[in-house]
């Protein structure tokens, strides 16, 4: 149970960073921390006590495997997270070039 709580705490740190900070790079970092927490949570749900990795060995038959399904889902999510981070960084670089700042409250022309 304490693993779930620590993972939730990590998520809350990311959420705080996204909601509270005004620098765009800090917001990207907060989104990254949230992504880490969600990936970790998926793998934690599939863990089994004294389990083995979901890869078959040559001679012996493995019975106590951990759940391979969340791992397969997270594997695609990690790469998608990288691509999305690159897209946000590109947009942030454009914003810096146009407005000369990373502060989101100074970007007045985005409003309405």
């Amino acid at each position: 149970m304490s693993e779930y709580l620590l993972c939730l705490f990590l998520f809350c740190i990311g959420l705080y960073c996204v909601l509270r900070k005004r620098n765009i790079i800090k917001i990207i970092i907060g989104l990254g921390i949230i992504e880490y927490a969600v990936n970790l949570f998926f793998v934690l749900v599939g863990y089994r006590i004294h389990g083995r990795a979901p890869i078959l060995a040559k001679e012996q038959k493995i019975l106590n495997m951990v759940d391979p399904l969340p791992q397969a889902l997270v594997l695609t999510a990690i790469v998608i997270g990288l691509a999305v981070t690159a897209l946000i960084v590109a947009i942030a670089i454009r914003i810096y070039e146009k407005y000369g700042t990373f502060d989101i409250t100074k970007i007045r022309r985005l409003r309405g």
């Binding site: 790469v79 990288l82 691509a83 690159a86 960084v89 590109a90 670089i93 070039e97």
Partner: peptide
């Protein structure tokens, strides 16, 4: 797909800085 796509992203981000 993944390798060349990520390489393209990186090239574009670096190329922009050099042009600037």
């Amino acid at each position: 797909k993944v390798g060349v796509g990520l390489f393209t992203i990186f090239v574009v981000l670096v190329l922009f800085k050099i042009l600037k």
